[in-house]
C-alpha cells in the first residue's frame, strides 16, 4: 500500500523540529519510530504536508539519572528500555508492559515517546479510506456520528498503549517542548478524555522525555489479548506499589487510562478499587471481543494484578 504525498525532513534538534512545524503552519507530523504513524498515513487517517523525523535528535536517545529521577529520552526504543537494568530492577510493571508491547521486532523500532502518543484505536476507524468512505465518516474522521454506538455524542476509541498505564502507576511525568517553551506534566494529565483528539499536547509540542521518580517499586502488568504477541490490549491493568501504597491504572478502554490510588492495601480497599474501576469502565463494541466481557475483565485484572504484586512483588 503506497503512502500519500508528503515532504520529509530529518532534524537534529528539538528546536529545529519546532521551527519546521511552524514553517508548515501545523500541517506537519512528528515521526519517531513510525510504527503508529506510518499505518495512519497509509490509511489516509492523517494527511500532513510534511513528516518531521525526530530520530536524528541525539539528546532524545539517552537514559540518565538525575536527582532521584530517571530521565528517559522519548526516542529510546521500547526494546532498549526493556533491557535497561534500572527498569528491570526498579519498575517491574514497566518492564512487563514493555515486554508485552506488540512484538519484539516492533519493540526495536517503536519508541517510548511514540508509544505514549499513539493515536486511539477503533475497529471501525483503523481502516482504509475506501472502507471508511463506504461506512461513512465517524467523529474521529470529522464526521457527525459514531459508527459503533448509535446516537453517541462522543468518540469511544480506545487508547492502547501498554506502557502509559504502567508509567502512570510509577508517577511518571512527561516533558514537552513547544512553540511556547517547555513544560513538565504528570503523564495522566496529557489525556483529554476525548477520543477524537485524545491528547492535551499543544500543536507543535514535542514529547522529549519521560521522568520517573527513581525508587524501587513492586509491580505487575496484566494484559488481556487474544494472541500472546502483536496484539493491542483489549483491556490492561498496571499496578505499582511502594511503601504500602499502590497506584493502579487501567488502559485499553476508552480514550484515556484511568488511575486509582490505594493508600492502604487491605482486602476491602482492593475490592473497592476493583469495583470502582469496573464501574468507571465504559467499553463499547469497538474491538474484536464483546464490550460486556471487557468491562467484566476490568475488575478481574485489577484483582489479579494486585494479588500478584502482593504475592510475588511482580518478579
Amino acid at each position: 500500500m503506497i503512502l500519500p504525498q508528503f515532504e520529509y525532513h530529518k532534524v537534529q534538534s528539538v528546536a529545529g523540529a519546532i521551527a519546521l512545524y511552524r514553517k508548515y503552519k501545523g500541517k506537519a507530523r512528528y515521526c519517531a519510530g513510525g510504527t503508529d504513524l506510518i499505518p495512519l498515513l497509509k490509511q489516509r487517517l492523517s494527511a500532513p504536508a510534511a513528516v518531521i523525523d525526530l530520530k536524528g535528535i541525539d539528546e532524545l536517545k539517552t537514559i540518565t539519572r538525575r536527582k532521584g529521577v530517571l530521565i528517559i529520552g522519548a526516542n529510546v526504543t521500547l526494546f532498549d528500555l526493556k533491557n535497561d537494568p534500572i527498569v528491570r530492577e526498579h519498575f517491574p510493571a514497566l518492564f512487563q508492559s514493555l515486554d508485552a508491547t506488540s512484538c519484539e521486532t516492533l519493540q526495536m523500532r517503536g519508541t517510548i515517546g511514540g508509544n505514549i502518543l499513539q493515536d486511539t484505536r477503533c475497529i471501525q476507524y483503523n481502516k482504509s479510506l475506501e472502507w471508511r468512505t463506504s461506512r461513512g465518516f465517524c467523529f474521529k474522521m470529522g464526521g457527525k456520528a459514531c459508527n459503533v454506538v448509535l446516537n453517541a455524542q462522543a468518540c469511544f476509541s480506545n487508547y492502547c498503549s501498554d506502557n502509559a498505564p504502567a508509567l502512570i502507576t510509577l508517577s511518571a511525568k512527561v516533558r514537552l517542548k513547544g512553540l511556547k517553551g517547555e513544560r513538565t506534566v504528570d503523564l495522566e494529565k496529557i489525556f483529554s478524555g476525548n477520543g477524537k483528539a485524545p491528547f492535551t499536547v499543544e500543536p507543535g509540542e514535542v514529547l522529549t522525555a519521560i521522568l520517573i521518580p527513581l525508587k524501587k517499586t513492586e509491580g505487575v502488568y496484566e494484559k488481556l489479548r487474544v494472541r500472546d504477541s502483536m496484539d493491542y490490549p483489549l483491556v490492561d491493568a498496571a499496578v505499582s506499589m511502594a511503601g504500602g501504597k499502590a497506584r493502579v491504572c487501567i488502559g485499553g478502554i476508552g480514550p484515556a487510562p484511568r488511575l486509582y490510588v490505594i493508600k492502604n492495601m487491605d482486602e476491602n480497599t482492593i475490592r473497592d478499587t476493583a469495583d470502582k474501576a469496573y464501574a468507571d469502565a465504559k467499553p463499547v463494541a469497538n474491538t474484536t471481543i464483546s464490550a460486556a466481557y471487557r468491562k467484566k475483565m476490568v475488575s478481574t485484572l485489577v484483582k489479579r494484578a494486585i494479588k500478584r504484586v502482593l504475592k510475588e512483588g511482580g518478579r
Binding site: 512484538c103 475497529i123 471501525q124 481502516k127 472502507w131 463506504s134 461506512r135 459508527n147 487474544v226 494472541r227 500472546d228 504477541s229 502483536m230 496484539d231 493491542y232 474484536t288
Partner: peptide, 28 residues
C-alpha cells in the same frame, strides 16, 4: 478454534487485516 473468525457490521468486514484477524503466532 480459539482465535479466528471474520467479524461483521452488516456488510462491512471489520477485520480485513492481519492485526484484528488473529492468525495464531508462534507463541500461541
Amino acid at each position: 478454534t480459539i482465535t479466528e473468525g471474520n467479524l461483521w457490521d452488516k456488510g462491512h468486514l471489520l477485520n480485513p487485516d492481519l492485526l484484528e484477524y488473529k492468525v495464531p503466532l508462534a507463541c500461541d
